[in-house]
Design a protein around this nucleic acid. Structure first.
Length: 443
DNA sequence: AAAGCGGGGGT
DNA sequence: ACCCCAGCTTT
């Protein structure tokens, strides 16, 4: 940062008077309720998209009472397509709180607003600044970008230290008068001129003393989020083969990677294969052979598969887990080991009914060596999978158990022996198909 | 197809 | 205080 204090408010306000957007739906009659709804919607979607949603929302829920009294499904219905549905739930919940505890009027205090679900410091500040003109700074993405460039603030704004710097700067710049206009102005500048790519500096009222402009390094600010390496996970396929050449396959859960497809049973790469075969499948391996590992790329992570060919000669017909099998509970989460090994488990373990879809990255747990890795619970999840909403819960089973990748599947009887040739006719996970073909060739 | 986006919430 | 997350849009 260069300038400790630079009154840019006046320039922004004058610029906004000439070039700012003033006829957006939420700018007409900016009541706290209307500003609130707009701010929540704008957190996740661009202005052009929000407008339609906002107008439909306001038609159906013209005031806070209408929102608070509406069924949640109605709210979610009007939110469909906007994404981030938890924010619609928060909006609805908060409306009820305001109805029940604030007499139906949005509270006029930062702390009271922040106490409402879905409202943080910046959103609370925006509500008070835009609807009442109360002097509160905001720090949304647009403002962050403007401040990072103007002051040459390096580092990723998501980092605590950088964010604190930005809040301090935002606070200093917020004027004592015309707070509402100023707030609109700095957001508008970020949204229309000081955009992430190819900012229109020639038109910017702050160009003369913008640090990034002076450096000719607008693209450097704000610094991007540190790259997180693509999650990399490992699993072992237990390729049980009986003397007739039949292979034991497992149908995967309907959600998750390879959902509904048939796959070899999995276990941890460092598991005791013989013990696993005995306890889980009731068979004793005659031989176990590690085949060449397979690298499989997913959108969100890389998976190394270690296939283990297990020849069995005394299948007792019971492929379900034995009765005394420990470490089983129906909805448990997968757990990270404390030995530092990587794990991978089937998706069923981490899934819970009605829980939100997960995102691309998994939960991170600390390794004993201080590095970070993705826990096995997270490893189970891929696009569209269900998981526990709390990474912590997913990382520690309620009974303290470790992974039990197959227990749910075994319980549901989704294990089958496939005679040679039969497997080719069912839906197979891609690497499974390759392995089966490879086995057929090698015989 | 992959990355960006931004603020809230959980640990 | 730190880290994670959603889900659409953009490149």
């Amino acid at each position: 940062m260069s300038d400790a204090f630079t009154p840019i408010a006046g320039r922004l306000i004058r610029w906004y008077a000439r070039h700012g957007r003033k006829n957006l739906p939420w700018q007409r009659d900016p009541t706290p309720y209307r500003v609130w709804v707009s701010e929540i919607m704008l957190q996740q979607t661009q202005v052009s998209v929000v407008i339609g949603y906002y107008e439909r929302f306001m038609t159906r829920f013209p005031d806070l009472a209408a929102l608070a009294d509406a069924p949640l499904d109605d709210v979610l219905g009007l939110w469909t397509g906007l994404g981030y549905y938890s924010r619609a739930r928060n909006l609805h919940r908060a409306a009820a709180v305001v109805r029940d505890r604030h007499g139906g009027a949005m509270p006029r205090g930062l702390d009271a607003l922040v106490a409402l679900p879905g409202i943080g410091r910046s959103t609370a500040g925006a509500i008070l600044a835009l609807s009442h003109g109360d002097r509160h700074p905001i720090l949304d993405g647009n403002v962050k970008r403007v401040l990072c460039r103007y002051h040459g603030v390096g580092g990723w704004p998501g980092e605590g230290r950088v964010e604190r710097t930005l809040w301090t700067l935002a606070e200093r710049h917020t004027p004592r008068e015309q707070v509402a206009v100023y707030t609109q102005a700095i957001m508008d500048l970020g949204a229309t001129l000081c955009v992430r790519l190819r900012p229109l500096c020639a038109m910017c009222p702050l160009e003369a003393d913008c640090a990034a402009r002076r450096e000719g390094a607008q693209a450097k600010y704000p610094a991007p989020r540190p790259r997180r390496e693509t999650p990399h996970r490992e699993t072992a396929f237990l390729m049980l083969r009986d003397p007739g050449g039949a292979l034991l396959l497992e149908r995967r859960p309907p959600v998750g990677i390879w959902g509904g497809l048939w796959c070899f049973p999995e276990c941890e790469p460092d598991a005791d294969v013989e013990a696993v075969c005995r306890s889980r499948f009731g068979v004793r391996p005659a031989t176990t052979t590690a085949l060449a590992p397979i690298a499989h790329g997913f959108t969100h992570f890389k998976l190394d598969v270690y296939p283990i060919l297990v020849e069995v000669d005394d299948d007792d017909g019971s492929t379900a887990a034995g009765p005394g099998e420990p470490r089983r509970h129906s909805s448990g989460a997968a757990v990270a080991g404390s030995d530092g090994s990587r794990r991978y488990s089937s998706g069923a373990a981490a899934a819970g009914p009605g829980e939100p879809r997960r995102h691309s990255s998994g939960a991170v747990v600390a390794d004993s060596d201080g590095s970070r890795r993705y826990s096995s619970g997270a490893a189970a999840a891929g696009p569209g999978e269900l998981r526990r909403s709390s990474p912590g819960a997913a990382a520690t089973g309620s009974d303290g158990s470790r992974n039990r990748p197959l227990s749910a599947v075994a319980d549901s009887g989704e294990l089958r022996w496939y005679p040679p040739g039969a497997a080719a006719s069912v839906g197979l996970a891609a690497p499974v198909k390759r392995l089966i073909e490879q086995l057929a060739r090698d015989r």
